[in-house]
Design a protein around this nucleic acid. Structure first.
Lengths: 220, 220
DNA sequence: ACTAGGTTCGAACGAACGTTCGAATTATCG
DNA sequence: CGATAATTCGAACGTTCGTTCGAACCTAGT
């Protein structure tokens, strides 16, 4: 009771659940973004459970208690990171698909968008891929909804291809195989050895599209 | 000092580092295997860091202290699980490849072996895939060595295919894409919805082999 | 300069963590 | 059965965990 009323007295900004109105990013917004960036790096390196609030405090140069001014729990911090990352990648994809009508080109755009964002934000995407199941019911379902939307876009693209070329394959398995190829990247990509996103997207696009498009079986 | 001499007095069996001589599995071996199975399930469900020794104690029906009779640390327990799982899958692969000379068939065997073992031991393989980086230098390097051997076998198979058919593609990216397709399975496979290992291996084999084999680019 | 509110921090909370130890229990075998 | 070794356990160790609280600091507006 006492703590509830005390919480009610808190600034309306603390732990707000909705983004503020558009405009110049406030001090609060900038600091929160910084913290999210540092936290992403730490989660990437040590995993969500393995990273302690004290690790995050050290990485972001803010006191342990100070962090709680920006988010109310470690779990919500992970939620903020995942939500932001996923929302951004979906937004970019939609913008890039706009106006492109060729089916195969649209699939190549999907792959390129995914890999480009993946490699440019490796830490965030690893946290997204690797810590996909740790969010509990409340937070988890919201991220899962964005994930489902992203997945459905890819299903739509492949169904389009199937119809246009009268192909036969399991869309579900094709989509999930494609995601596997792309998401696995976080386990092996080395910027000093491996090519850039465009090359990788080209190669993976070749393998995947030929594999899904080509005529009969290769089996004897 | 005192503790060191005390440790020296312990049974030679405790925390032994080498497998015992062949023969009927002793009580010790059977109990250890049980614990490993239960621990695998818990690691799979909660992650390595997220699973506490008390969770493992509850799952295996043995007291917290009792567990330490079978392994000296939580990290070594993970090592035992990973080592055993990886060793088994490599052994089975070698046995299945023996005597098969057709290049494409050998690749299909690789895929089938991987997926069959993956689906039959989902928990263990998830722990293998998902907790690949948490083992520290001592334990990690030994598991990494088996992993490298497994990886090299796959590289060998693909190089064989490239030479036999005079193909041009990056072996590294092809192999890692294939591993991505296969390993990602632990994030989506649902035994009530999805086909069995043989069907999945067939479909993935088709996509991958056609993708890697087929002639020119599909790009315009 | 004064005030009000936004921001940060040191110190501490209880809970849970991995691990240890010596005693108690159970199996093995002469 | 008695003795020796293998196995199990309750209780506790010291540490670290996520989180909270009230006071202090800083900044903007008057």
């Amino acid at each position: 009771m006492a703590s509830a009323s005390a919480a009610a007295r808190l600034s309306a900004r603390r732990h707000r659940f909705l983004p503020v109105t558009r405009g110049p990013a406030s001090r609060y917004d900038k600091r929160l973004a910084e913290i999210l960036t540092h936290a992403t790096e730490v989660f990437c390196k040590k995993g969500y459970e393995g990273a302690s609030m004290r690790d995050l405090s050290r990485a972001s140069g803010m006191s342990l208690a100070g962090l709680y001014y920006y988010f109310e729990s470690k779990e919500r911090l992970l939620y903020l990171i995942q939500k932001h990352t996923f929302t951004t990648i979906v937004q970019r994809l939609k913008a890039r698909l706009e106006g492109v009508s060729d089916t195969e080109e649209r699939i190549r755009i999907f792959i390129l968008n995914h890999l480009e964002y993946f490699l440019a934000n490796q830490a965030a995407m690893k946290v997204l891929s690797h810590e996909a199941e740790v969010l509990k019911n409340g937070f988890g379902s919201e991220v899962a909804a964005i994930k489902r939307e992203y997945y459905r876009i890819c299903v739509g693209l492949l169904d389009e291809l199937k119809r246009a070329r009268a192909l036969q394959f399991s869309t579900r398995i094709a989509v999930l195989s494609l995601f596997g190829m792309m998401n696995w990247i976080y386990t092996w990509h080395n910027p000093r050895v491996d090519a850039d996103a465009a090359s990788l997207a080209g190669e993976m696009g070749d393998v995947f599209l030929r594999g899904v498009t080509a005529g009969g079986r290769t089996r004897k």
